[in-house]
Design a protein around this nucleic acid. Structure first.
Lengths: 341, 341
DNA sequence: CTGAAAGCGCTTACAG
DNA sequence: CTGAAAGCGCTTACAG
């Protein structure tokens, strides 16, 4: 591997000059610049990023901290991660992946080790010790999601707009008994996840604003649990004619369970699923109406805002993006339940 | 941030000694070791990984090169990536993600920049220029998949065992007309992907060994294309009673298309899908029999073999892992087509 | 516009 | 068992 010194020797200049042309950090006369450029090309020179990092105190690496939990592994995660890496590279950064298990000192090693210039944190909780650690360490970061004290830079789904649109859509079809099947389980630590709390709050607000009675059941994010959830919905709230479901895997099971209960979708029961995959709606038969999570946009915004902070281009923004409501072609009108029983 | 010098000063030793205890690279007397350890704890010292990398010429970072193609973004990719990161960290390495677009010089920057000690390459093609570049640059690597000249370290799915098991399973149920719906399209560059070629070859071999006639159609990896694929199968090969489908998204569409053609699954037609998700079989209704891709195992093996090479522990292995056949509960027996038409 | 030189925070022969 | 010192390949004030 050719070093900067090799290039300098060949071009007959100092390594400082080579550095200036490589980084475009100072004016260099046309002639010398050309000599240097030629020398670099001849030697196939690429600057050593480790040496640069040590000298400049910037690694140009950012970390993506995400939960290494199986049940959260959807297609959206891949889309998110891919876009995060692409956005980072577009700005000259690399992306390291930090699947976060429960070991508490992992953050310390990551931050104190000096490997990264900043951190993107996924699946933020309302009270998140990781955020406190980041603030305390003065590491630049951006959050995908929000804590309850909204003083930090974040990008998040706009749950109020999203669930209002979903409820509105169902109401327009004539539904009055709209249930929410959420991943939120009181017994789980996940119950603190911001997006679960906020989606439920937004659903309740939209329902109550219309004088409708919210009905929420918690349900694990599996097909199996979704089937079981269908039974519970129609047992506990038999008047239900529409269901909004937050977890995608549960949605498949819920759909199958609703059909198993003797209802036709969408003729008897309307369903809307939060969708992490771009065409998950199309995977089911019947096709589901979905709220499409803007994973790509969230990743791009999160990474860009992080790098803006690192490079001190801008103050950290707070952005909310609604999910897009993708309406299935054949949509249920609300029916009187007596028709079908 | 405390430096090694700070620790040395506080412990009253030289930085060399601190280095020896941090890295356990030379014998240090009990007393001094304790003084150093105490000083590190008091200062909250973590060694700077960038400085270590520059001095030791090892970054302890490995790259995961994967194709940034939307259509390949399944749950398996997430599982793979997560496991790769976890396996790397278990060995003291970090994982950087390199979604690979078509720019040819990206490999050069990655390798020549000195950021990584080695590379895991996904979605290997039969003739893969990236592999040639890696060999030429003397960068340690391991392949997920194989080129046609099998002289390199790799881990891959054992397609022969996997498709033999699938064909055997269907034959045991009495099927004789078993079609393969593959993602392989002659017009696409993807047609060179090792796993597409090898799965098709293995299917043909298993069919021919039984005196059965293989029937293959290519089909894009989308729900839409899967529906269309169902039509083509029963138009071009009306005797078909069983289908093996390589792409998961296509499988959903195919299932829906087969039902749309008036057949019942699994009563009239048996289906087996290559499954990247652990419970994709359970997502459909009816439940599908699946060949479950060992994404986690492939990732762990690939990363471990790469790090073994980097640390010169072992010669690079070549490993094949079959998919597990997960048989749906209610399975089709082959029927005479005349029953249902 | 260009260069000499200090310094980033470690590792690692080499001495003792 | 421990230390002094060179060196990893850059960046960046500081001079000129």
């Amino acid at each position: 591997m050719a070093t900067m010194q090799d290039v300098a020797d060949r071009a007959g200049v100092s390594i400082a000059t080579v550095s200036f042309v490589v980084n475009e950090t100072k004016k260099v006369s046309m002639k010398t610049r050309e000599r240097v450029t030629a020398a670099m090309a001849e030697l196939g020179y690429h600057r050593n990023v480790v040496a640069r990092a040590l000298a400049s105190q910037q690694t140009h690496i950012v970390a993506l901290l995400y939960p290494a939990l199986d049940h959260r592994n959807g297609p959206a995660t891949t889309a998110f991660v891919t876009q995060a890496a692409l956005s980072a590279r577009a700005r000259g950064y690399d992306l390291v992946l930090w699947p976060l298990s429960s070991e508490p000192d992992q953050m310390a090693r990551l931050i104190a080790g000096g490997l990264v210039d900043g951190v993107v944190l996924m699946d933020v909780r309302l009270h998140d010790a990781r955020v406190d650690a980041l603030v305390h360490s003065q590491t630049p970061f951006s959050l995908i999601g929000r804590t309850s004290d909204a003083g930090h830079p974040f990008v998040d789904i706009d749950f109020e707009i999203t669930l209002e649109a979903a409820v509105d859509h169902l109401c327009t079809l004539g539904h009055k008994h709209i249930a929410l099947v959420s991943e939120r389980l009181p017994s789980e630590p996940l119950s603190d996840l911001g997006y679960l709390v906020r989606s439920e709050d937004a659903y309740r607000a939209s329902m109550e604003a219309r004088g409708l009675t919210p009905f929420v059941i918690g349900c694990a994010g599996t097909t199996q649990a979704g089937r079981e959830g269908a039974r519970r919905v129609f047992h506990d709230a038999p008047a239900t004619t529409a269901v909004i479901v937050i977890n995608e895997n549960a949605a498949f099971g819920l759909l199958s369970g609703v059909v198993g209960e003797g209802y036709s979708v969408p003729r008897d029961v309307s369903m809307i699923s939060l969708s992490t995959s771009f065409d998950v709606g199309g995977l089911t038969d019947p096709v589901l109406t979905t709220m499409k999570v803007p994973a790509t946009e969230l990743a791009a915004l999160g990474v860009d805002s992080l790098i803006d902070q690192i490079e001190e281009h801008a103050t950290a923004p707070q952005a909310l993006i609604p999910c897009e409501l993708v309406i299935a072609e054949s949509t249920a009108q609300a029916h009187d339940r007596s028709q079908i029983s």
